[in-house]
Amino acid sequence: MSTIHKSPWLLHYDGSSCNGCDIEVLACTTPVYDVERFGVINTGNPMHADIFLITGGINSQNEAVVKQIYEQMPQPKVVIAVGTCACTGGIFKECYNIKGGADTVIPVDIYVPGCAARPESIIDGVVKGIALFKEKAAALKASENAN
């Protein structure tokens, strides 16, 4: 457990966003912003992932998908809502098919606002997420030792 928090893996899923935040999340993993220098790596498999980056609001169809991805991730896990839509529903909040932000279906730890969220703020969010991940990992270990 002590080594995992030095390199948590990222998973990205697009809720019902306009895709602007998604390409910014992807841009974060490419040379100019390079979030991987903090030890994270982007993965496609929820079972490998520790940090979940979700963009966009929740609609009736992707609700189950988001929940399932969240449940498939191993403990401990950190959820980061990227962009205004993932935080509150944003400009689409009044649409008939939007339930609201990501926190309507899964617990969100860190909110990164912005439309579209800038890579700098996404990196800030991820760095905070890594710190939180460390805490959660320590808490999990402590509770395991107590048992």
Partner: peptide, 14 residues
């Protein structure tokens, strides 16, 4: 399809 359907065309009434 339908995972990202928001229905933004309906926002014309709002």
């Amino acid at each position: 399809i339908g995972f990202i359907h928001r229905g933004l065309e309906s926002l014309t009434s709002k």
